[in-house]
Amino acid sequence: MSEKANARRRKFQFLDALELPTEWIIRLCGWSSIIGIAAIFLFIFREAAPMVPKLDWIHFFTSPRWIPNPGTGNDASFGALALLVGTFTTTFIALIISVPIGLGAAVYVSEFAKGKTKETLKIIIELLAAIPSIVWGFIGLMILGPIVKWIFTAQPDTWWSHTMLTLHLASADTGAAQGTNLLTGGIILALMSVPLVVSLSEDALRAVPDSYREAALALGANPWETVRRVLFPAARNGLLAACMLGMGRAIGETMAVLMATGHNNRIPAALTDPVRTMTATIAAEMGEAVVDSDHYRMLFVLGIVLFVMTCGINVAADIIVKGVKGKTK
């Protein structure tokens, strides 16, 4: 027996020599994300740098005039207010929709669904997460757009149109007759971030020890009370992180919003006004902007703003999560 074990040990002794290199390879894998992010930031910043001191930042944040290719004799105007508003509004709508649906779905999957239903749901949610964004954009353009248009179309002078217009639901300009708009884009973004919110929230809920559930039941709490009073507070950090990551997904998304929001550089006055996001602007204009021109550099400045925003969200999420943790302990 021991001879056999010794033989085995000898046979695999060469593996010891691999120990150190393996350790380093794994360490490098870990560092690669740091190296990657540093490289990305350096690259974006290098491309944008010449524009940073030159740019009128107040104008950038307060003017909606985005005219990167001005007429002969005119100065370009790089006012990104409408683009910022476009990004924030679509993200906001996406969050309003995706957070309740995502949390609800997560509670159902983790607490109530049993056996086959649970497995099927989990697989389908993962499948949803795997749909490429261009397909989502296409769905927005071809299927959701016409539906939104049909619901919100303000036929002139009907009670429906008056209600829609007073509540700022229908667009006064187009009567939502343009299917691609803020709402369509927001819904598509919500659909895209729901799978992420669901699977992360579900993980968070599952991480709550069963003893908590048992204790709640023993105290006579019904399932809803258990979820609301026990599970949500216990899984708070994870749930918040899930929502934040869903938000990050919505802000950074490009292709789907490019197709579904109407690409209109304006500050929306109604829910179904077309808008334009920063990501869509970069995607639409980068291809033809002359390399090293002001326009080209401005697109990288937009990139920096996006980068700073998503970093900010992640850091904020981190701080909030830690703060919340500190309180509960």
Binding site: G71, N74, S77, A82, G262, N264, N265, P274
Partner: peptide, 11 residues
């Protein structure tokens, strides 16, 4: 000077 387009045009 060349006049620019008004804002709010879908591009």
């Amino acid at each position: 000077k060349q006049r620019e387009f008004r804002p709010g045009i879908s591009e």
